[in-house]
Write a protein that binds this DNA or RNA. Structure first.
Lengths: 225, 225
DNA sequence: CCCGATCTCCACCCATGGGTCCAGGTGCCA
DNA sequence: TGGCACCTGGACCCATGGGTGGAGATCGGG
């Protein structure tokens, strides 16, 4: 997720769009950024897979509507065969099916075509770094979809954890929920294993958690993991 | 959304975190970016509102858990009174309530504390440009929440587990997922604890499960618990 | 009739987890 | 200037978990 030195790494990008009138100028303008190198252009999903297989690629800038193999399918296959390649979707459509389909297939970014050059380059850099960049409207749709179902769905949701848990205790619980052993938690938080155990003892007592397995369940239940 | 010229505009940023040990170095390191200027530091939500009211501000980097007024409430009020100010959340927690709460209150970005300097500065620039930047885990949670409701997903039972698990191994896994210790599992199945351990060893190997915590997660994921 | 899969159980070993008690340091607030 | 909450850490103890190797019993199918 994090990198220490400046964005010095050269990002190898594949541009995929079935319309040459979009693809060519896009590739040209991206090449202007000195940390981005457009290593291939593709006009459908299978060409993307071929290009990625041919050489090292960091990010694919992907249109969704393409003949032969569409962008969602290509994204899905990339995730299976080349999980280290990040996909940023660039399309004119921002309907729920496209958004959920693409992100569900593993896309890290989703831009609409009113995004500017800066927006696109930024999304490419973010995706390469493991972040996700969405256009505002996309974000809003995604959020709206998520919110219609999540809130107030059951009585056990909100107060599943006592309120008097400390910051540190919550962090520890979250990491337990992610399956880390005490040593791993200690390393992650830059504290000693003894301290981790102290936090665990305290939070187990406060939240009435019996053991680690119970803690994992509670963490997942509370959405911490 | 788009801007044509390079990122020449100086971004005025407010850093909000109740822990000075986090706030101070964060503000310092952000000032290193030549297009970012930290114009204020705040230790709770009301200080954020005061700082924004005092001078022109482009982006607020906001912690969630703060005394007096928390980050979500502050974000909500900023949206009402200063809709042009973008909020990027930077917190240690990535639970559903926090994510949906913050984004629902209008935050444009959501980062966890394992984000590096580049990640944070990128998110600030994106937010100022109207984009949304999320950490990968945050994006995954948001997507998972959105997907559980949107598509008609029927009973998705055991596809996440290998098919060659025996009946007994599945039973044991389910009981692990319910938080039972080996002795409890043994009693439940009327077998000895030694046998339970044997099953556990076998199923861990088959399903590539590392330890009990991992098993709990897998069991829940597979719908066994 | 033997083979293989499954279930059952044992002994042994060591790492990890969970509990207890204690104590120093910090920062905040009355 | 106290007290208090929180984070940090150490020592110690014992229970549990996880791994290895082996072994006997049952049952079904080739």
């Amino acid at each position: 997720m994090s990198e220490q030195s400046a964005e010095s790494k050269q990002l190898r990008v594949v541009v995929a769009d079935d319309q040459a009138a979009v693809r060519e100028p896009l590739a040209a303008v991206l090449g202007l950024a000195d940390d981005i190198e457009v290593v291939a252009a593709a006009s459908d999903g299978s060409e993307v897979l071929a290009a990625v297989a041919a050489g090292p690629v960091d990010v694919v800038l992907m249109d969704l509507r393409m003949p032969v193999m569409d962008g969602i399918e290509a994204t899905r296959r990339l995730g299976e065969e080349f999980p280290d390649v990040a996909v940023v979707v660039l399309t004119t459509f921002a309907d729920d099916d496209s958004i959920l389909g693409a992100l569900g297939a593993g896309a890290r970014g989703y831009l609409t075509k009113n995004a500017g050059r800066q927006d696109i380059t930024r999304a490419i850099r973010a995706a390469a770094a493991g972040q996700s960049v969405l256009d505002r409207e996309v974000q809003d749709r995604l959020l709206a979809t998520a919110r219609t179902k999540a809130p107030a769905q059951g009585p056990q949701q909100g107060q599943s954890l006592p309120a008097d848990l400390t910051r540190r205790e919550r962090e520890v619980l979250a990491l337990i929920g992610q399956g880390l052993p005490n040593r791993g938690i200690a390393e992650r938080l830059f504290i000693s294993e003894a301290t981790v155990k102290t936090h665990i003892n305290n939070l187990f007592a406060k939240a009435d958690i019996r053991d680690r397995a119970d803690a994992v369940r509670r963490a997942i239940e509370a959405g911490l993991a």
